[in-house]
Amino acid sequence: MTDCIFYGGKGGVGKTTCAAATGLRLADAGRRTLIVSTDPAHSLSDSLEADVGPEPSELEVGPGPETTDEERLELDAGGSLWAVEIDAETQRERYEKLATALAADLRSAGIRLSDEEVERIFASGAPAGGDEVAALDLLVEYVDSGEWDVVVFDTAPTGHTLRLFDMPEVMGPVLETLQSLRGQASRIGTAAKSAVFGPMSMMTGSGTDGEESLEAFQARLGRARDLLADPERTEFRVVLVPEGMAIAESERLVETLRDAEVRVDRLVVNRVFEDPDEGCSRCQSRYERHAKRVSEIRETFPGLEVVTLPEREEEIRGLEAVRSIADRLPADP
């Protein structure tokens, strides 16, 4: 059974680094792990210093320097690290292929559309919320494949993440309306039905049967919602920095996730200044300010574990740099 760990928070707080470090730690401990970036501004490739594309690919990571003999045996028994960046271009291309197929169906039914007309109809690309819908669809695909023990999600900034968790409920009324329209369209022929439901078939990548595609898509959204709200399999970790605005935004995010019945056990406070030089008054002041913010975070989120990661002068890039903070992050959800 595949577990899921989501990292979310406002932009620029270090979600990608946390996701990469957690995935690497799990792989070092012998778990088959997939890191998924759903952030349109992908930085997973940069963080891991590896080529990460729109399809899951295995990375050459090897055992870490702190890996125990027991963990090395587990790693030899099947631990591995995979990564993927959900690619908006790929989704757009899938939508364009759908447009071409739909136009062919219409032409075969005697409805003539020129290439220019088809292009205008689908000029806006994927429908609103397409990124979030694609993420949910791929979540189910990755989990149900059984290829990985844990899937770690590096999510987009807070607004996109909230839409991700709202999408199953938002799409429910839309799907009900489409089902009603489908019944009416069935009375005027297959071509009309394809015209109404063709755009939805992109979500499942299944055949041209609109009825089957719509029902399969609805079932997958329901499956995604159940998985997100399953506390035995899914945990959401909020990443923030020791700043007032970040604390306030994280408070809203945690509240929304709890309302959605998504398990939130931990906060990761990134870039906390530690070990100031004794002779540096500015360093001491910064250290005290961050310590005060961390205390404020603990008071604001009672009952949640607060994990801190140190501020570093250099950017955390590459496997060894990512490994250097991995042991400070909880591994299993």
Rank of each mutant, 00 (worst) to 15 (best):
Cys4Thr: 08
Ile5Asp: 00
Ile5Val: 15
Lys10Gly: 06
Lys15Trp: 07
Thr17Trp: 05
Thr17Met: 02
Ala21Leu: 03
Ala21Trp: 04
Thr22Trp: 00
Gly23Asp: 07
Arg25Thr: 11
Arg25Lys: 15
Leu26Arg: 13
Leu26Ala: 15
Ala27Asp: 10
Ala29Trp: 02
Thr33Trp: 07
Ile35Pro: 08
Asp39Gly: 05
Pro40Thr: 04
Ala41Thr: 03
Ser45Pro: 05
Leu48Ile: 12
Ser57Arg: 15
Glu58Tyr: 01
Glu60Gln: 13
Gly62Asp: 09
Gly64Asn: 07
Gly64Tyr: 06
Glu66Asn: 13
Arg72Cys: 05
Leu75Phe: 10
Ala77Arg: 15
Gly79Lys: 08
Ser80His: 10
Ser80Val: 09
Leu81His: 10
Leu81Ser: 04
Glu85Ala: 14
Ile86Cys: 07
Thr90Asp: 14
Gln91Asp: 12
Arg92Glu: 12
Arg92Ser: 07
Lys97Pro: 07
Leu98His: 07
Leu98Trp: 08
Leu102Tyr: 05
Gly110Lys: 03
Ile111Ser: 02
Arg112Ile: 13
Asp115Tyr: 08
Phe122Asp: 04
Pro127Val: 11
Gly129Ala: 07
Gly129Phe: 05
Asp131Gly: 01
Glu132Ala: 02
Val133His: 02
Val133Arg: 02
Leu136Arg: 00
Leu138Lys: 15
Val140Ala: 14
Ser145His: 12
Ser145Phe: 06
Ser145Gln: 12
Glu147His: 06
Trp148Phe: 14
Val150Gln: 04
Val150Pro: 00
Asp154Glu: 06
Ala156Phe: 03
Arg163Asn: 04
Leu164Tyr: 03
Pro168Tyr: 09
Pro168Lys: 04
Met171His: 00
Gly172Gln: 02
Leu178Phe: 02
Leu181Met: 14
Leu181Trp: 10
Arg187Phe: 12
Ile188Arg: 07
Gly189Met: 08
Thr190Trp: 00
Ala191Leu: 06
Val196Arg: 10
Gly198Ser: 06
Met202Leu: 13
Thr204Lys: 00
Gly205Ile: 11
Gly205Glu: 09
Ser206Trp: 03
Leu214His: 09
Leu214Cys: 06
Leu214Asp: 02
Glu215Lys: 03
Ala216Ser: 11
Phe217Lys: 01
Phe217Pro: 03
Leu221Met: 13
Arg223Asp: 05
Ala224Thr: 02
Phe236Gln: 04
Met245Tyr: 14
Ala246Leu: 07
Arg252Leu: 13
Ala260Asn: 05
Ala260Pro: 00
Asp265Tyr: 01
Asp265Glu: 14
Arg266Met: 12
Leu267Trp: 08
Val272Gln: 05
Asp277Val: 08
Glu278Val: 14
Gly279Glu: 15
Cys280Pro: 12
Arg282Thr: 11
Cys283Lys: 12
Ser285Asp: 14
His290Trp: 11
Ala291Thr: 13
Glu299Ala: 14
Pro302Ile: 05
Leu304Gln: 08
Glu311Ser: 11
Glu311Asp: 09
Glu315Val: 10
Ile316Cys: 10
Glu320Met: 08
Glu320Pro: 00
Ala321Gln: 10
Val322Pro: 08
Arg323Leu: 05
Arg323Glu: 00
Arg328Asn: 10
Arg328Ala: 15
